[in-house]
Design a protein around this nucleic acid. Structure first.
Lengths: 216, 216
DNA sequence: ACCGATTCTGTCCGGGCGGCCGATCTCGTA
DNA sequence: TACGAGATCGGCCGCCCGGACAGAATCGGT
């Protein structure tokens, strides 16, 4: 089964180059080209190609907005969109991914990666250019599940209290939730503050958020 | 200039397969093989290859620990480590990336991506398998700069107060920071709670963290 | 010139919070 | 067995917070 692709770029030579690279693959067929964003959206909605290769910089609608229109949040049957760009700007990367892109490749990444990105997008996966991935990982590692967990001297029970405090519960409510007395809750909160060197329950909550004890 | 690679996997056949794929490239040379984690660390430290291809599941030291030893936080001159695995488990992914991996590929991703991962790692970039990237992006989009910012009816001044509250400041401290009276701060906090339907300052802080008003 | 929103200020009071005591009970470990 | 750490309770006191008032200055827009 061949993968149908739409290529959108305002420069005819770039479109030609992409078409050459892609059609060199036996299982990929370029079924449409578009010279600007509006054209791309129209053609994509009409032909519903397996993958849309979209440049970020285009007249009328830019690549980000095209992505949002075809794969953004709230779109009923989203298409797979791979965003292509010459300039490695974070602004483009974040915009594209937030808009629902299933891939993000730089034009200088070589034909092999481009083809792989199309194949990945076709089966629902996402390929991101290595140089971009690197910076993405930097952002990510700080937010990774299990990371950012600071070494803390808190007991399990105290952690339960911390989580409750971080959710905005009063001591009385925490007592009810944990089936213990108000005095005990206050003991625990006091112990937590002493151990961590925090001055009040809001700082306890802030500590919990920063160390991913609370929140999702 | 050729890229020197160390291949670590407990199965000789897998090592052979990887070697075949890599040495098919004119610019890549496999300079060492290792059958377990300890061997891999020793060889990597001695030979300092450009890229280390490391399987996650290995005797003695697993791939994650090898990565931590060669590229983890605190290592003076970190090597480039690409982690390879058969099983697409989040646990491996997060562990590897947190340990400092410069790449993460599944064994079923095809030779082309494997080679690209090595090349990317060599020039300091990171390539992650498309199927893994997809899930990574899901985690990421929620934490992307500019996203998660909710529509709120708060004024600019109220936002300043929210940020101060989220940092754990008392009303008195906020008054001093913003050069206003204690009464005014209480007014603002009360207004914020009313507008957002929150019951106390900890919930205000929690709201700030969830909507990325506070925190970095 | 008026209106609404924002910002700033004040007083009063009840309740929650934080700090400081002390106390018992149950563990696991030395 | 004795010790320490954790979990559980109690009381007391002072401060901070939250809620409900009320008043005034500033500013942008009809």
């Amino acid at each position: 089964m061949t993968i149908t692709v739409l290529v959108a770029d305002d420069q005819a030579m770039v479109r030609g180059g992409l078409r050459l690279i892609l059609e060199d693959q036996p299982d990929i067929e370029v079924v449409a080209e578009a010279a600007d964003g509006a054209e791309a959206v129209e053609a994509a909605r009409r032909l519903r190609p397996d993958v849309c290769l979209v440049d970020v910089r285009m007249p009328r609608l830019d690549g980000i907005e095209v992505t949002r229109a075809l794969a953004g949040p709230g779109v009923p049957d989203p298409l797979r969109v791979v965003v292509v760009t010459t300039f490695d700007l974070d602004e483009y990367v974040y915009g594209a991914l937030r808009a629902g892109a299933t891939g993000f490749v730089l034009k200088d990444c070589g034909p092999a990666l481009l083809v792989e990105a199309v194949r990945a997008a076709h089966q629902g996966d996402a390929l991101v250019s290595p140089s971009v991935t690197l910076r993405l990982l930097r952002h990510l590692t700080a937010h990774l599940p299990g990371s950012g967990r600071a070494d803390h001297p808190l007991s399990n029970r105290e952690l339960e209290v911390v989580r409750a405090v971080a959710r905005g519960r009063t001591n009385q409510e925490i007592a009810a939730e944990l089936f213990i007395s108000l005095s005990t809750v206050k003991s625990h909160v006091a112990g937590i503050q002493a151990k961590l060197g925090l001055r009040n329950r809001v700082e306890v909550a802030a500590w919990a958020w920063e160390n991913r004890i609370a929140g999702s």
